[in-house]
């Protein structure tokens, strides 16, 4: 399971759904409603970090609703970078949720905005944060092969 290949369009569709939700958090501003929605997104990222991007509810929607309408992908993608990107999303949203829970509600839309940039770029132009950071982290010894 750890080295499998996935359809690269799955994580991108998932990222577009997540980006819309994060935009909604920004619109809700520094509010309890925003905190709840960000907590929901955090749980989605937690699922993705544990099970990979294809194991999230967004991945499930892609498999059930989108994939059957598409042709086969030009090529498959390693599942590790998208999963790593889920971990980055988990970290960013966790900062917002924890600060928000301690009464710093302004951190909620700010964390959502940061995560939005990554999710939207992933969805629209395929920028993969995990791929971009992989070598930097190898160089600094943060991750091993």
């Amino acid at each position: 399971m750890s080295n499998g290949m996935i359809d690269p369009r799955g994580p991108r569709v998932g990222a577009s759904i997540t980006a819309v939700l994060l935009a909604a958090v920004v619109l809700l501003g520094a509010s309890t409603a925003g905190l709840w929605l960000l907590t929901f997104i955090l749980l989605s990222f937690l699922l993705g970090t544990l099970r990979g991007a294809e194991g999230t509810w967004q991945g499930f929607l892609f498999k059930k609703l989108v994939r059957p309408r598409l042709g086969p992908p030009a090529e498959m993608e390693d599942r590790r970078p998208p999963r790593f990107a889920q971990g980055i999303g988990l970290f960013v949203t966790a900062v917002g949720v924890v600060l928000g829970a301690f009464g710093v509600l302004v951190a909620v839309p700010i964390a959502a905005a940061v995560a939005f940039v990554a999710a939207a770029l992933n969805a629209v132009i395929g920028l993969c944060l995990g791929c971009e950071l992989y070598l930097l982290m190898r160089r600094t010894g943060l991750v091993r092969a």
Partner: peptide, 24 residues
């Protein structure tokens, strides 16, 4: 609410600019 809408518009424009720069 207006403040949040402006924040979102700025965010989307900033993200788009970043995307264009990265793609180029």
């Amino acid at each position: 609410m207006l403040g949040q809408v402006i924040a979102l518009v700025v965010l989307v424009l900033g993200t788009a600019a970043l995307g264009v720069w990265w793609s180029a």
